[in-house]
Amino acid sequence: MKVAITSTGNSLDSTIDQRFGRCAYFVIYDTETGGVEILPNPNRDAQEGAGPASVQLVASRDVRKIISGEFGMKIKSLLDSLRIQMVVYKEPEKTVQSVIDMLKK
């Protein structure tokens, strides 16, 4: 299963970006293969609609679960309609690697 984690930078040592739609990077981790893909978020500076566009982006990668600090109301219903699980993880100090370690267990 693929999991998207919002990240402030383009390495696994970066901390978790608390914003979903306007995060700097998406780290996509595959729990089966252990593979990691880091995508810069093209929507981070979008004037409007960054949230839905970001959902669209991760959904197109077949992500089933998203981990981020917060999600807007509209985002919740879009994710529900796609049956993507949303995990609110308000830990701005934690690194992406630490989340991946948790997923491994």
Binding site: G49, P52, V55, D62, L78
Partner: peptide, 14 residues
């Protein structure tokens, strides 16, 4: 304006 939410794999367009 990102106003069309489109995920073809899930057959969602909104």
């Amino acid at each position: 304006y990102n106003a069309i939410f489109y995920v073809p794999t899930a057959k969602v367009i909104e």
